[in-house]
Amino acid sequence: MRGLYAVTPDVVNLENGYWGIMAEPVRREFIRQTDMINYENTCYVRQRSAGDFEGVRTKVAEAVGAAVDEIALTRGATEALQLLIGGYNKLRPGDAVLYADLDYDSMQYAMNALKACRGVDVVKFNVPESATQQAVLDAYARALEVTPKTRVLLLTHVSNRTGLVLPVAEIVRMAKAKGIDTIVDAAHSWGQLDFKVSDLGADFVGFNLHKWIGAPIGVGFLYIRKERLADIDRDMGDEDFPEVDIRSRVHTGTVNFATVLTVPAALALHQEIGAAAKQARLRYLRDYWVTRVRSFKDIVILTPDEAGSYGAITSFRLAGKTSKADNDAVVAQLRDSYKVLTVRRAGVAKGQCIRVTPALYTEEADLDRLVEALAVVTDTKAG
């Protein structure tokens, strides 16, 4: 796996949750497509790009297990989810929308904006830390019970803050039983976990292709179950496509053509490696370092070890160190003294934390360096 990636030797990069670097075959294809676009320019775009883009959309739909008319390409999961949240047209004044502390910041902003533009009440609640799957289910059940006017629930499959994998299908069923629609944020899950969109049970989902699938930066897609298309408005009154075409729900103007044209190469490599194999490897790498540091002095692992509750991402903090300054200091120490790159994450109800995200190219020796650094940071060896 390491041979598929060209990675800087100057630092151990354990901040792969931002986006996934392209494997070398994908990078070479991106350069080839970039050169072609620059060379042929609008001669290509005006004559052939529409058919090629439709081919890309078809490959994405097949890979995620959806019909092609349920898929529209976007510039990422953030754009996809903003369009789903902002375009959902069944809300009425007095309704409520619900989200949790572990949901992504941009999606929280989009939910908050519904108060002004739709006249709804916006309710936020906290997911337990560190949670079992049952505790998460109980927390969502309580939130839905105490907010009976909820019409839309935002639900994140894999939290960018802690890496917690939520029992999405069960929560979606719970919500549907109460007549509540769920918009699922799958930005971090597809490619990190082995699943198809039908496994989620949700009618509205936003995905990334530049994280765990490994396409170039700037591409994702949204999914709307075909029977629900009318419940999402056209994007800014789009008239490029018929109202019955899901592509009318996205209007972004000129995109990076080479990025989109490289998606099939990323999907091909993803499928060659195998989703199940990727999931197993990423979980192995996560377990490799977590099992070694759980007993360290004053270290608090936020992500549970329960099967089905994690993938590659796990976050930690030092006991009692919950501020931005506290966690920035640890991130800086790991980076500057040990050449290990991590990232601080805010927004968790019980305090800020540090996210560790290995990638497929990560080796055990990389994680050994993290473990050795944390032993010093926590003064475990001295203790």
Rank of each mutant, 00 (worst) to 15 (best):
Ala277Phe: 07
Gly206Thr: 10
Ile183Gly: 01
Val219Met: 03
Ala175Phe: 02
Lys211Cys: 07
Gln271His: 10
Pro167Thr: 06
Gly163Gln: 03
Arg173Ile: 09
Gln271Ser: 08
Asp194Cys: 09
Gly163Met: 03
Trp190Thr: 04
Gly237Asn: 09
Val197His: 03
Thr162Asn: 05
His251Arg: 10
Arg225Val: 04
His251Gln: 10
His270Pro: 08
Lys226Leu: 12
Thr254Tyr: 12
Thr291His: 14
Pro242Tyr: 11
Asp233Val: 08
Ser159Arg: 07
Asp235Asn: 15
Tyr288Asp: 06
Asp203Lys: 00
Ile224Ser: 00
Ile299Asn: 02
Ile217Asn: 15
Ser189Leu: 14
Trp190Ile: 11
Ile224Asn: 00
Ile232Asp: 00
Asp240Gln: 10
Val255Phe: 15
Thr262Ile: 09
Leu164Thr: 07
Arg249His: 06
Gly163Asn: 10
Ala280Glu: 15
Ala275Tyr: 13
Lys278Phe: 05
Ala186Ser: 09
Asp298Asn: 08
Lys297Thr: 05
Ser248Leu: 12
Gly163Lys: 00
Leu267Ser: 02
Asp238Gly: 15
Asp235Pro: 07
Phe241Ala: 13
Ile217Cys: 15
Val293Ile: 14
Ala280Gly: 12
Leu267Glu: 00
Ala169Glu: 05
Phe221Gln: 04
Val244Tyr: 14
Thr291Met: 08
Tyr288Thr: 11
Val244Asp: 15
Glu243Phe: 13
Thr162Pro: 04
Glu243Met: 11
Tyr284Lys: 07
Arg161Gly: 13
Gly179Ser: 07
Gly237Arg: 05
Lys176Cys: 14
Ala215Asn: 03
Arg228Leu: 04
Pro216Val: 02
Arg228Asp: 02
Val300His: 07
Leu222Phe: 03
Val293Phe: 04
Leu269Pro: 04
Leu166Glu: 08
Leu164Pro: 05
Met236Arg: 14
Arg286Glu: 02
Ala169Leu: 13
Ala275Gln: 09
Val165Ser: 03
Trp289Thr: 04
Leu282Thr: 02
Asp203Cys: 11
Arg249Lys: 12
Leu269Ile: 06
Asp238Arg: 15
His157Tyr: 13
Val184Ser: 01
Gly237Gln: 06
Leu269Val: 15
Val293Tyr: 01
Thr182Trp: 01
Val184Arg: 00
Pro264Trp: 04
Val165Pro: 02
His251Asp: 14
Asp199Asn: 06
Thr291Phe: 15
Gly218Lys: 05
Gly253Asn: 08
Leu209Ala: 04
Phe257Tyr: 14
Gly191Trp: 00
Tyr284Pro: 09
Val197Met: 09
Val260Cys: 09
Thr291Arg: 14
Gly191Ser: 12
Val158Ile: 13
Asp238Thr: 11
Lys211Ile: 12
His270Met: 13
Arg283Ser: 14
Leu269Ala: 11
Gly214Trp: 00
Asp233Ser: 13
Val290Ile: 14
Arg228Tyr: 07
Ile183Leu: 12
Thr259Met: 10
Arg161Thr: 10
Arg234Gln: 14
Arg294Phe: 06
Gly220Val: 11
Leu222Tyr: 03
Ile224Leu: 06
His270Phe: 09
Ser198Leu: 13
Arg292His: 12
Val219Leu: 07
Phe204Glu: 01
Thr259Val: 12
Arg292Asp: 15
Arg228Ile: 02
Met236Leu: 15
Arg286Asn: 04
Val205Leu: 03
Val219Ile: 10
Ile301Lys: 01
Val293Asp: 01
Asp240Ile: 12
Tyr288Phe: 13
Val250Gly: 01
Val250Glu: 07
Trp212Val: 10
Val172Pro: 03
